[in-house]
Design a protein around this nucleic acid. Structure first.
Lengths: 343, 343
DNA sequence: ATTTAAAATTTACGCGCGTAAAGTCATTTC
DNA sequence: GAAATGACTTTACGCGCGTAAATTTTAAAT
């Protein structure tokens, strides 16, 4: 087909016999022109290789069809997975997702937002780093660009938040663990980078107290995003010392649990439900790799799909409304218990 | 500082007392103006909040400062890691990386290239899917845009290729395994998606024959990119049937090995070097999670850093030369043996 | 066949910046 | 101090498309 290259819309107008303003309308929304002319244009598009110049288009629009998607760490399969799902939902709505990772770095996070601002995006879906984030600058960005936060909440920032109901999910797993064995100790980082970690800690304590049990926190030192390494290090210590009031460990997230399980294995401690097992370990998130740990990891699944869909949906509504929302809305999705071999 | 918003370069010219063409030169290359005027501009930039409009800039350039980076699967920590490293190198050279994942899908891969073409990138770094890739269209793209392939090679396509020396790395691990125990069988997918898999298979066969040993292939059925799942499924079968001529398994890549190890654990087969172990397993790639398998995975590390740096470097040279290279160059980096607990 | 509303065309301007040409100014060289 | 070189300013055009206004065509409704 593709007979010859067309340089610009003017040229395409002359070869297709359609006026340029009509073509412009067509490319902005094919449904906005009469069905018969639409067919004529589409026929011409099959003959000639033409696509409108992206930069010329966006220069004249106040807002583009770009949607920024920022996650704290692209190498983390959890975020990679959720980014991928969000990407698909954004594409469905006819927008162009621009995916950026913050590499666990607050400066990079701000740079990503700055870089997005130049793209004049219609909106941004942002999963903030959490504690390390420059909250003021993120809030300022949220004032200028329609922004929906997901995964990690920052109060009063952005137009909405979509995430997991950590209270419910921790309740769920604590109840399960208590029902089926000894009550769990809670294994976490001493200074978590992520606000969800704080919520989970508090939810654990409340859940235990509700059951008239004494909460027990195991707090690992360590900075950064090498959670497996931290879980491994602290897990090795815990297993060696053997001074726990319980044989059951609930990890604040699956990546810590993966490291912990590795440590237990190395130390020769059998984890799981079998008769020769001396310890139970559970996680949180249903990390893509939690199916392949040894033993397979019992955990609470976050509803990736729902979070992705709702975030995208909320942002779209925000964009189409063209007006800041009356009030900031927070949506939380319940977790689902995933019973596997480790607890 | 940031007194007031400046609308465009014209306005910034009047408030800063510098002519617009000079400003234009400055923003394209700060070193291209006299040091004294450069200081004046930079001083003005601290007072006024102005950044050139990205779209207007790129509309008038034949090529932009964008560098496309395409990987087959962003959720795979291996590619996430290498993408991240490449991204950093691209940024260093003053270009803007645009990261796209193909989701294991050939159509998506082509769409990514199409989408990049609209961005008028200065060059593209592409890790193709492999067997599934539409080789013709990728080759055609390589004719139009300076393109360097990495990780997976496609003959005659793109201006250069940078990857791992699978021959050397498989030799290395086969030698090691033979030196320290029974010679390995090779565990792989029957119809690999990735050309490296074929190279590794052949390298294994050659290495075995060189040692006057009989190669033994275990080929798992299965499509797609769920390598752990395939490794788990086939691993379960292998362990159950117990009709192997050897107790040592060399997996074509770490993700298969991760699934295999999980299967062995579930089946109660001890893997490793200890006296109670009945099997050895090795992998290839030094996948970020191979440190946390049970037992930890002995593998061959690909030189991520070297591949990333060399790819970026090669592309930059290509871009600056502004002329298609005299001949296509292939660069292969040696692997490094990583001895851990599994073999 | 006539009216009418919707859609397409013609014409024209603007977006913000790259860039070329000619002229002016500052800095270096002898 | 004059000449020469380089840096800057002024002026002006073009990039490809969005979009507004006025006009004409088309298709549907009476």
């Amino acid at each position: 087909m593709e007979d010859k290259k067309i340089k610009n819309m003017e040229e395409f107008a002359s070869v297709s016999g359609i006026s340029r303003p009509t073509l412009s309308k067509f490319f902005n929304d094919p449904a906005s022109v009469r069905a018969s002319t639409r067919r004529r244009i589409e026929a011409a598009l099959e003959q000639y290789d033409y696509r409108p110049n992206l930069y010329a288009i966006n220069q004249n629009r106040r807002l583009t069809k770009n949607i920024g998607v920022v996650v704290p760490y692209l190498s983390d399969p959890f975020f990679a997975e959720i980014a991928r799902t969000i990407e698909a939902h954004v594409l469905e709505t006819g927008y162009r997702p621009v995916l950026l990772g913050s590499h666990g770095n607050a400066d990079q996070e701000i740079e990503n937002l700055e870089s997005l601002r130049l793209l004049k995006p219609a909106g941004v879906l942002l999963a903030p780093l959490g504690r390390a984030s420059d909250r003021n600058r993120i809030a300022a960005f949220g004032q200028e660009v329609p922004t929906v936060l997901f995964d990690a909440n920052i109060e009063e920032t952005g137009a909405a938040f979509v995430g997991s109901n950590n209270g419910q999910s921790i309740d769920l797993i604590v109840d399960y663990l208590c029902r089926t064995g000894e009550p769990p100790a809670f294994f976490e980082m001493k200074e978590p980078t992520n606000p969800n970690a704080f919520k989970r800690r508090n939810a654990y304590i409340e859940a235990m107290e509700r059951l008239s049990l004494t909460p027990h926190l195991i707090q690992a030192a360590g900075e950064g995003w090498e959670f497996e390494e931290i879980g491994f290090r602290e897990g090795t210590r815990v297993v060696r010392d053997r001074n726990l009031p319980t044989n059951t460990i609930l990890c604040s997230n699956d990546r810590l649990a993966i490291g912990f399980l590795s440590a237990a294995y190395e130390a020769g401690v059998r984890v799981g439900l079998g008769p020769d097992c001396t310890m139970r370990v559970a996680g949180h998130d249903n990390h893509p790799f939690s199916r392949y740990t040894c033993p397979t990891l019992t955990t609470v699944s976050q509803d990736y799909e729902a979070i992705a869909q709702k975030s995208a949906e909320t942002l779209m509504a925000l964009i189409e409304a063209q007006t800041p929302p009356d009030s900031r809305r927070e949506t939380l999705f319940d977790g689902r218990l995933v019973m596997r071999g480790s607890a």
